[in-house]
Amino acid sequence: MIFPGATVRVTNVDDTYYRFEGLVQRVSDGKAAVLFENGNWDKLVTFRLSELEAVK
C-alpha cells in the first residue's frame, strides 16, 4: 500500500522517470503525486498507482 510520505520507485519502463525514486505527496483516484528532488530542482509528477512500487 502506498501512502503520503512513502518513498516510491517508478516501475513503468516506458516512462521518462523509470527507476527514479521520490516522495509521495498525495494519493487519490488511483493516482499518486510524487515529488522528485535533485540538487537545485524539484518536480511533482502524477503516476497511476500501478506504475509505482514502495521502496523498502
Rank of each mutant, 00 (worst) to 15 (best):
I2T: 02
I2L: 06
I2H: 02
I2A: 02
F3M: 10
F3R: 12
F3C: 11
F3G: 08
P4N: 05
P4H: 05
P4C: 08
G5Y: 04
G5K: 03
A6L: 09
T7D: 02
V8W: 01
V8N: 01
R9H: 04
V10M: 02
V10D: 01
V10Q: 01
T11N: 07
T11Q: 05
T11G: 04
T11R: 07
T11C: 09
N12P: 04
N12T: 08
N12Y: 04
V13A: 11
V13D: 05
V13Y: 07
D14G: 09
D15N: 15
D15C: 14
D15T: 12
D15I: 06
D15R: 08
T16C: 12
T16H: 11
Y17N: 04
Y17A: 03
Y17W: 13
Y17V: 02
Y17T: 02
Y18K: 02
Y18V: 02
R19P: 05
R19K: 11
F20Y: 11
F20D: 03
F20M: 14
E21M: 12
L23T: 14
L23H: 07
V24R: 00
V24P: 00
Q25R: 08
Q25E: 07
R26V: 11
V27M: 07
V27T: 04
V27Q: 02
S28K: 10
S28E: 13
D29V: 05
D29P: 05
D29F: 09
G30W: 04
K31S: 09
K31Y: 15
K31A: 08
A32T: 01
A32F: 03
A33P: 00
A33E: 15
A33L: 15
V34Q: 01
V34A: 00
L35R: 09
E37K: 15
E37V: 15
E37H: 14
E37N: 14
E37D: 10
E37C: 15
N38K: 11
N38W: 13
G39M: 10
G39T: 09
G39F: 08
G39H: 09
G39P: 07
N40A: 12
N40D: 12
N40L: 11
D42N: 15
K43Q: 11
K43V: 14
L44G: 03
L44A: 06
L44W: 07
V45H: 06
T46M: 12
T46Q: 09
T46H: 09
T46F: 13
F47I: 05
R48A: 13
R48Y: 14
L49G: 02
L49D: 03
S50E: 14
S50H: 09
S50N: 10
E51P: 00
E51W: 06
E51Q: 06
E51N: 05
E51I: 04
L52S: 00
L52R: 00
E53V: 10
E53I: 09
A54L: 15
A54Q: 09
A54M: 13
A54C: 11
A54E: 10
V55S: 05
V55K: 04
V55N: 03
K56F: 13
